[in-house]
Amino acid sequence: MPGSLSKDAITILLVTAILIWIMPQLISTYTLTILIVYGMLGLSLGLIWGFGGILCFGQAAFFGLGAYTYAIAAINIGESTFPMLLAVLVPAAFAALLGAMMFYGRLTDVYLGVITLVVTLILFKFINSTAGPQYVIGNARLGGFNGIPGFQTLNIPGRPDDYIWGDSYFYVCAVLLALVLFLVSALLRSSFGRVAVGIRENEVRMSLMGYDVRARKTVLFAVGAAIAGLAGALFANWAEIVTPSLFSLGQSAEIIIWCIVGGLGTRFGPILGAAGLAYLKFLLGQQSVVDNTLITGLILVLFVLFLPKGIVPALAGLWKVSFGRRPQGRIHQQRRMRNRGGANG
């Protein structure tokens, strides 16, 4: 990864500025807010899959968990600051437990995928079946498939009556995304991030070099879940209702598709993939000639077959070929391509 952290910061500031000043003139801020939330969700999987080599089929579990945590805590507390924190911490703690169970069991690849998938299903089934009045946490009824409506939405910290909504909520989300992106960049530049990429490339070698692969993967997994949880809480504030469909397999599938289409192993790829595809879905939802799901599926198949690296790396490659200096490290690039999709120990 060329450049330095300060250069990253400038890029991120620039992108945020564009996001805040130019995008609202093209798309309504209400739609933009959800695109940003999805972008953050895409980034969370992009971090652990693209850089950590952990293919998690259940990123939606952490997203949903964040949203539900926020909703339940907000009903019980009646103020949004602490619930927002909880919505980050609870999924992270859950992921740390789950990750520890998986990584200390040395599960990889398919088994990892299946376990995360199954855990998502368990949550989905459980939440779906909690319609009865006996399922309460504090004052909050879990509500089964009806979800939880009517919780306290985001307010200025300490002032429960000053809601942040509409345009200002969009700005909050945009700034939070920029902040998360900056933190992710910083993490990837730190030695922890470099070791994580090393683990993705060759797990055995990293463990022989004396790094505790299991602990590092667990921590990275938890960080990804924390970001997904934050996205979930932001989603809950946007939608003003949380439903079990947040945990659904379709949601998990979409996150994976965003990452594939945007480009793995990049930070901007999953964000762009998420926002782009979500917007495409929004546009497609306004017509009824062709079914929405059909197109999503077709996009995924075509990308896996013809552009498995995703859009951002392909564009970056095109840029380098057209305008850049002659690439010196061709072999490194090829090796990165080959290892896409997981560390096969």
């Binding site: 690849d109 598709i257 059909l294 599926g297 198949v301 896996v304 999709g341």
Partner: peptide, 26 residues
């Protein structure tokens, strides 16, 4: 085209599954 690429078959068939759901819905 995808034999031997475990993760890619998984993603492509997930795409197929969405495709078939859409087709059946139509």
């Amino acid at each position: 085209h995808l034999y031997g690429r475990l993760v890619d078959t998984m993603l492509a068939t997930w795409g197929l599954s969405l495709f078939f759901i859409g087709l059946a819905t139509m």
